[in-house]
Amino acid sequence: MDWLQVVVLSIVQGLTEFLPISSSAHLILVPVLTPWNDQGLAFDVALHIGSLAAVVLYFRHELVRMTVSWVGSLRGGGQDDDARLAWWVLLATVPVCLIGFTFRDAIEVGMRSPILIGVSLIGFGLVLGYADWRRRRGGRSEYQLGLKDVLLIGLAQALALIPGTSRSGITITAALLLGMSREGAARFSFLLSIPVIALAGGLEIVGLIRESHEVDWVAVTVGALLSGISAYLCIHYFLAFIKRVGMQPFVVYRLLLGGWLLWLFW
């Protein structure tokens, strides 16, 4: 791998993991627009580790409180808001895990069409636009969710297994439609990303252990650092941006990108 490839892939992963614009669509475009070969599984693992480290670092204070309260609830100490939020994050992760593990091979083989990605970008982008327009002001925070809300957001997250949907995009859309504020929807979506990225990264690590290829540790380390830095900045500025502007700029971007993919591959 050359250094330009390392930098581009790391920043693309760090940004698109959390913006509602679909990382799969962008990772499809990189080899289309460049002569680069596949970066390899070790580099993919490093990028996921960087993104995971970024979101854990950003929400470190919340995660400490949630973990302490959650452990306390297991010991019979009752549930406060932090313990309940921890349980909600775990519960909302179950649907995507069950569906992902059950249909993983079918998804990887049969749903990587750029045309499908383009349609998903446009279709789910329009739904995101409607949800954001409908929820322009106010709404509940992530601490005010109920069981029904969590189950519906968890089921929506499973739709992100369709390439082009965007995990953050579909969970934010569902949360907005359920009456959450923009910031609350985004924060809950980011918390949901922690177990999902950890599980996906774990599967990749298992695959990496089975491989016997050499690993470029310098490129892997730099990739993880760049992915982590770009992801952290993305989370920080995204939360500030949507509070003032909303989701519509991302909706327009999804429509343009989806239209371009359809024009390119139809």
Rank of each mutant, 00 (worst) to 15 (best):
E62A: 13
I99K: 04
A224N: 08
F250Q: 01
L152Q: 07
L116D: 07
T171S: 12
G179P: 03
G246S: 08
M1R: 11
I209Q: 13
A158R: 00
D44T: 09
G146I: 05
G146D: 12
L191I: 02
I229V: 15
H213W: 14
F241N: 04
L177F: 13
I209E: 14
G14C: 05
F188S: 01
Y143S: 10
S230P: 02
F103P: 01
I99T: 10
V6I: 13
I122C: 10
D80C: 05
V71T: 10
P163M: 06
G40T: 10
V12Q: 08
V220K: 06
A106R: 14
E214C: 13
A174M: 11
R75A: 14
A92P: 03
S113C: 10
L47V: 03
C97E: 12
V8N: 07
I21C: 05
L121T: 02
G123V: 07
M111K: 08
V56S: 09
I162N: 11
F265Q: 09
M247E: 08
M1H: 09
L4Q: 13
S230Y: 02
P195A: 11
D44L: 09
A224Y: 02
V220G: 04
D80G: 09
V7P: 10
L192C: 09
G258N: 05
L91P: 01
S141P: 05
V109C: 12
C234I: 03
V8W: 07
L225S: 13
W87Y: 12
S168V: 00
Q144V: 03
L57F: 15
R244S: 15
P20Q: 15
E214K: 14
D81G: 12
D105N: 15
L255E: 05
R187K: 12
H213P: 11
V251L: 09
A186H: 01
L262M: 11
D44Q: 12
I197S: 01
V30E: 11
A46L: 10
L9W: 06
D81M: 13
S10C: 08
Y237I: 11
L199D: 06
A198N: 07
G201W: 04
G129W: 01
V109L: 14
T165S: 06
S212N: 14
L151E: 02
L203Q: 10
L262P: 01
V96T: 10
L15G: 04
S23Q: 03
A106V: 14
Q13N: 10
Y237L: 13
A54D: 02
L264H: 14
R60Q: 13
L27S: 03
